[in-house]
Design a protein around this nucleic acid. Sequence first.
DNA 1: ACCCAGGCCCTTG
DNA 2: CAAGGGCATGGG
Length: 310
Amino acid sequence: MRNSKDIDINLSIGSGQVFLWEYHDNSWYGIHGKNIFQIKLNKDNTQDIHKDQKWDEKIEYLSYPRWEHWEKYFFRLDDNFDGIKKSLSHDQKISKLLEQISGLRILRQEPFQCIISFLCASNTNIPRIRRMLYNLTKKFGEKIELGNKRFYLFPEPKDIANASIMELIDCGLGYRAKYVKTISSNISNGEVDLTYIQNLEYLKARIELIKNTGIGNKTADCILLFSFNKTNSFPIDVWIFRALEKYYSWLIYENNINNNKEKKDSKKYKLNPKKYDIILNKLENYFGEYAGYAQQYLYYYIRESAGKKW
DNA sequence: ACCCAGGCCCTTG
DNA sequence: CAAGGGCATGGG
């Protein structure tokens, strides 16, 4: 059984997977569906938690409502991280990253919140995703006061289904508003069954998700990786595509799959669905069962080297 | 002003 | 199929 002290909380929470987490007063606070998670760091050296030998003793995992050991679920402590490392060790780049930033983990998110999050994530940047989601919680989520702090839980499907398009646009969703409303109604009326989809195997679950307007290849892969436990999923966004081009060109350019090279920058890193699937299939074969971890390490690395702070 | 952002949809050729 | 334009919005 692995020890949770190897996890770097700041790194994992700050790696563009979750958007409703905030740090203040030595605590991380996060919205997870109808739960509020609190990670209380009773120490000053919060930047290098994973290097601290007595990490476990200085940290408390609290929640509202009470959820004993939610951290085991959220940080995926059930994953065998040594096994993950081993299964990715054939790749030079990734094994190096697994050493350098070994505290980075995939987080297990609440499914509905995750779906809305990555529907909102299309063609925009992380700060704006955060604002859109916060606005949704503020407008449609239940308000909870804990001590002197105010939180808003993530709305339920019916809450968003009953909203008007204008109200959603007021949250800053733009053209995404109609997608968010439609899938919320379909989940709320039972037409879309998240538990059913979650229990399907990766490719079948993916097909079901993509049936929803607004969810394409990449968005589906994020949902599958971040909340449906499909650790082989490998979302390819513009950042990942840049990384693939830089470090895995032998993989993405073989058989002349990609002819984006000559396009102007704004189109250069966008894949059409067919190419996406061909490249994805190669990545699955190459990285295997835990391809998603490789993806997250690569994502963090390429953004870090581009100087992104968020 | 222009380009870009954890893309996707729709129309045309 | 592939290509191209449009989409809302805010930061750099």
